[in-house]
């Protein structure tokens, strides 16, 4: 009986343990963030890798999402003559949901996995031990810049994604579906508030933290050679994506009420 309980309870205990470890890891990284040296150069390098190098993939995702959104909502709204609302719908969905979430997912796939793989490789080839041996804290040297870059860059990627997505929607709506451009813009400006944009950006900063935290954590705790690195990378992508979607619900519930 007790063994059966133990058997079923173990996964839950494991989940809680993992939660606790990730949280401790985050606290550790934050304390190392406020200790000198600041390592701005490394932060910038990570910002380039997380932010600048993800622009293309984020742009492509955003523009096509905006376009397909315009197309789909158009057919829906046409049934009761509300074609003018297509712009507002595209803009609201982009700024509130699709911009932040899709950016988070794409950056997870691009940069989160890279973090896990890079740090994981450094772990299995003793490069992390080497950092310790040279009196350089790897949390500060490797993890902190990635976390900072994730939190800072995601909002910028998101704002670009919002903009491009809306542009995509505009092109499809106005040029392909012949919605009056004036009405398209007016309705959009009417319905979208500054708060929608900013809340989306706050969300994306949270996603940035989640994906870089999980990437670093999984990489940092890699065991078992090349196979371990592969496993860590896969786990990172899966766990990050799931966490982003779950936290998206709670953040939305909390912010938009």
């Amino acid at each position: 009986m007790i063994r059966a309980l133990e058997y079923t309870g173990r996964p839950f205990i494991y989940i809680f343990e993992e939660f606790g470890r990730i949280f401790t890891f985050l606290i550790n990284a934050i304390t190392w963030m406020v200790r000198p040296p600041l390592r701005l150069r490394l932060v910038f390098k990570q910002m380039e890798s997380v932010g600048v190098q993800s622009i293309i993939v984020v742009l492509i995702t955003a523009v096509f999402t905006g376009m397909v959104l315009a197309l789909q909502t158009f057919y829906g709204f046409r049934m009761f003559g509300g074609e003018g609302l297509v712009g507002a719908t595209v803009a609201l969905s982009m700024t509130r949901e699709i911009g932040p979430v899709f950016t988070g997912l794409m950056v997870t796939a691009r940069a989160g996995s890279a973090m896990a793989a890079e740090i994981g490789t450094m772990r299995v080839t003793e490069q992390i031990d080497a950092l310790y041996a040279m009196s350089v804290n790897p949390i500060q040297y490797l993890v902190m810049p990635r976390l900072v870059a994730g939190v800072l860059m995601l909002p910028f990627l998101t704002i670009v994604s919002d903009f491009i997505g809306i542009m995509g929607g505009y092109v499809v709506g106005v040029f392909l579906l012949n919605i009056n451009p004036g009405i398209f813009m007016a309705r959009m400006v009417d319905m979208v508030n500054l708060g929608d944009i900013f809340n989306g950006l706050i969300k994306s900063a949270c996603f940035g933290l989640i994906l870089s935290l999980i990437g670093c954590y999984k990489g940092f705790n890699t065991r078992g050679g090349a196979e371990g690195v592969g496993k860590a990378t896969t786990q990172t992508v899966v766990l990050s994506c799931v966490s982003i979607l779950i936290s998206d619900y709670f953040l939305t519930a909390f912010m938009f009420r």
Partner: peptide, 21 residues
């Protein structure tokens, strides 16, 4: 304190542990 002590050390790792980047 450990960082101070570690500065007295140099270490050559098994696979050299050079930073790939």
């Amino acid at each position: 304190g450990l960082n101070q002590t570690r500065k007295k050390f140099g270490m050559l790792f098994q696979d050299a542990a050079l930073f790939d980047s």
